[in-house]
Design a protein around this nucleic acid. Sequence first.
DNA 1: TTTGAAAAGTGATAACA
DNA 2: TGTTATCACTTTTCAAA
Lengths: 152, 152
Amino acid sequence: MIQLDEIDHALLRALSRDATQTAGALGRELGLSQPAAWRRIRRLQEAGIITGRKLDLDAGKLGFGVTVFLGIKLATKGRVSLEDFERAVSAIPEVQTVEHILGMYDYRLRVTARDIADFERVLRRRVMTLPGVGSVDANVLLSEERRPGPLG
Amino acid sequence: MIQLDEIDHALLRALSRDATQTAGALGRELGLSQPAAWRRIRRLQEAGIITGRKLDLDAGKLGFGVTVFLGIKLATKGRVSLEDFERAVSAIPEVQTVEHILGMYDYRLRVTARDIADFERVLRRRVMTLPGVGSVDANVLLSEERRPGPLG
DNA sequence: TTTGAAAAGTGATAACA
DNA sequence: TGTTATCACTTTTCAAA
């Protein structure tokens, strides 16, 4: 595992807030030359710490006003059924996140839909028919705050 | 609300996979000139559809090997206690996501820690002492898959 | 209006001290 | 690591469909 110093952490913190910042601007902020900052960022990528950059989209403005978290318990938990379940769930376009978890649920899904009627369609036609599903609990997203966490 | 055509959706789909792609490369892929692709991307930003670009970090490589989802029910649910709770939870650095939800839980937190011992510290010292907390359920993240969803 | 071509400005990447 | 140099991308301008 690669060793990171204060400056690396400051870079990660700054980029966690806004990944569009240029190496030059970050260097200026941290008292580094532009190529020095750039090389550190590349090092973080090559070490696999920065794995990519993703868009932040406003789902509501794209017509997807409903986000629901589903907690799923499987009925049968053999290895085969886990793989079957994961393959099937990956084919549902409305599923944004599949989390395999340990605890009171086996899987947690983040599902987005245009409205409640659209969500009901996804739930009945796609989710309830997934192979091995035992029970499904739902929570509707009201608001969300993402924080940098201790990583950056 | 802004009207999007096929090309805009293709751009969003491509950028959802990898937000580092250049306007020139995207234009070539979609049969558009470089400035045309660039202007469309800028339009999506100005319309508030693209709200930013965030880093994808490998928490494990940064020494945070444990991610836990907490489902929290509040004991008292007045407006004041929601705000108190949110303010207090935002001050915990290990919390990466705060989701206000409707259903069997009131809040869902994504918490990351170095190991189980570290997580226990966060849970006992920070989470259990949050104002208004009724009960806390936990699920440990085993693996996670993020998908573009229907947005892009 | 949205497009493509061209040009100017800025950042990314490489070579080198 | 910083300096310099080059190349690529971004951003603006402008003219045409």
